[in-house]
Simulated scan of single mutants.
Amino acid sequence: CTFLQGDAMALHRLLPEPVDYSLMANTFHGVPEQTALVREIAGVLKPGGLFAVVNWHARPRVETPVLGQARGPRTELRMTPEQVRAVVEAAGLRLDRVVELPPYHYGALFRLPG
Rank of each mutant, 00 (worst) to 15 (best):
C1D: 11
C1W: 09
C1E: 13
F3E: 13
F3S: 13
F3Y: 14
L4R: 15
L4W: 14
Q5F: 15
Q5N: 15
G6A: 12
G6Y: 11
A8Q: 01
A8R: 04
A8H: 08
A8P: 01
M9S: 06
A10F: 00
L11V: 08
L11T: 01
H12Y: 04
L14G: 01
L14T: 02
L14C: 02
L14E: 02
L14P: 01
L14K: 05
L14N: 05
L14A: 00
L15I: 02
P16I: 11
E17S: 07
P18I: 00
D20I: 08
D20F: 09
Y21V: 15
S22D: 14
L23D: 15
L23C: 13
M24E: 02
F28Y: 07
H29G: 09
G30S: 02
V31R: 07
E33N: 04
A36Y: 00
V38L: 13
V38M: 11
V38R: 08
R39I: 12
E40V: 08
A42I: 06
K46Y: 10
K46L: 01
K46G: 04
P47V: 05
P47H: 07
G48C: 12
G48E: 11
G49H: 05
L50I: 06
L50P: 00
F51I: 06
F51Y: 07
A52M: 08
A52V: 06
V53E: 03
V53H: 05
N55D: 12
H57P: 00
R59D: 09
P60C: 10
P60I: 00
R61T: 11
R61L: 07
V62K: 10
V62F: 08
V62M: 03
T64F: 02
P65W: 07
V66P: 03
V66C: 10
Q69C: 10
Q69G: 00
R71S: 15
G72Y: 14
P73D: 09
R74C: 02
R74F: 14
T75R: 09
L77W: 14
L77R: 15
R78M: 09
P81C: 10
E82V: 09
E82K: 11
R85L: 12
R85G: 12
A86T: 15
A86E: 15
V87W: 08
E89D: 12
E89H: 12
E89M: 12
A90Q: 06
A90I: 03
A90Y: 05
L93K: 07
L93F: 10
R94K: 15
R97S: 03
R97W: 03
V98D: 01
V98K: 02
V99N: 08
V99K: 07
V99F: 03
E100Y: 01
L101A: 14
L101C: 14
P102V: 05
P102Y: 04
P103G: 04
P103T: 07
Y104G: 11
H105N: 09
H105I: 08
G107P: 02
G107E: 08
L109N: 12
F110I: 14
R111W: 10
R111G: 10
L112Y: 05
L112W: 03
P113E: 11
P113Q: 04
